[in-house]
Design a protein around this nucleic acid. Structure first.
Lengths: 211, 211
DNA sequence: TGTACATCAGTGAACGCGCGTTCACTGATGTAC
DNA sequence: TGTACATCAGTGAACGCGCGTTCACTGATGTAC
């Protein structure tokens, strides 16, 4: 980790924008999305309190950049897990669900910047489209699943995608966050989500090819 | 609304504790759980900044009281909707889902104090048990639903209750919050949740008696 | 290759502000007799 | 019924603090010639 202040550097930081985003992540992870200030991010990055203004209009813009970065990482993680539905859609979907929870658990700072910090999702077009791209992975998975249903009885893929999103997000934010303060369960969140999705798929009438 | 400062009053407020909780709600609703301060709550209630210390140790304790109150209201709303499973468990469950979303939509301040504001759910025993009582309504509903399944094929009620909670919470926090900043949908959140729960119940193998 | 200069990232000092918290106090309420 | 007194909710002034934001500045980088 080369973002903290102990690295020697010259007058110019070199990559302050990046460093501030990392500082924000670190601070959000440590103290929650609420307790993180512009000045503190500057201090963490080892620059004067005026320096961040060269890169972000204000705290909100920095927060939006964190959320944007988060959506990009999130999309990458989900796409990697989905792996274009290999070897089949059901196995891949299970990986997708696990990856969703894994992201929420290991990257709580990103996750709360994306979904909880009150960043206006619709306002910033870049942020919106990054969110859309992440959702597109779920959407693609839903389409593949729906295509396995008998013709005539195919559920609408968009609806299925939204349902899967709601199940994953609900499970993640109620039970699967990395930052403690959560309910304890007699079962791991990943298993809870997996069972839930299996029941749901059976209800949809698509057949899992798994044993 | 008799909690704001314009009401004349004597030296003693009479019900400052209550007024501060209402002030907190109002401010959370207006500016989010993050942007609400102890001093502002005092100002809103029309008392000096030192007065709240007679009733709450600090901002966190006030926040926890808001969450506690929220869980009580939430439990009442859910219990009212469930109405002990009348006329049958499936009709009552649909009402329950609608009531869940309705609460999240119309009481976003309570909802975020309960689930998002970082109030340590496990720490305060009163808070924890209020949360448990609210969950017990879902749990009871799940038991009634599971009882309609053929013996031998009954799913575990606790799991079903957690699944329903995750679906409702996921739908509410992604799509159904009253404070804007949310994704827009081609379908109302309540319908989305209803469809999701119906698919899920079919997957469980319990039969809806509805047409 | 060297020099002059434009650009711009980061400085550091300064400011006003509102917050959290404390303190000795004041005035209302209720209770003992 | 009236008086004395204990209790305690709320006052208001005060404090130190960190934040957000501005400003004229300084020093590093890179480019034109």
């Amino acid at each position: 980790m080369s973002w903290s202040r102990d690295e020697p550097r010259g007058y110019h930081h070199g990559n302050l924008r990046e460093a501030l985003i990392h500082a924000a992540l670190e601070l959000i992870a440590k103290k929650g999305a609420a307790g993180f200030t512009f000045a503190e991010a500057a201090r963490f990055a080892g620059v004067s309190p005026a320096a961040p203004y060269r890169h972000f209009r204000d705290r909100d813009e920095l927060m939006a950049s964190v959320a944007l970065r988060g959506f990009e990482q999130f999309e990458a993680a989900l796409a990697r897990a989905w792996d274009d539905g290999r070897p089949d859609a059901f196995v891949a979907l299970e990986r997708l669900g696990k990856a969703y929870l894994e992201f929420a658990r290991t990257q709580p700072a990103y996750y709360s910047a994306m979904f909880e910090a009150g960043v206006p999702a619709g306002a910033d077009p870049a942020l919106r489209s990054a969110g859309d791209r992440a959702f597109a992975v779920l959407r693609g998975a839903a389409e593949r699943l729906c295509a396995t249903a008998p013709p005539g009885g195919r559920p609408p893929a968009l609806m299925v995608a939204l349902h899967i999103w709601a199940m994953a997000h609900g499970t993640a934010s109620l039970f699967g966050r990395g930052d403690g303060a959560q309910r304890t369960l007699p079962i791991a969140p990943a298993e809870l989500l997996e069972a839930q999705v299996l029941v749901y798929l059976r209800g949809l009438g698509v057949r899992a090819t798994r044993t």
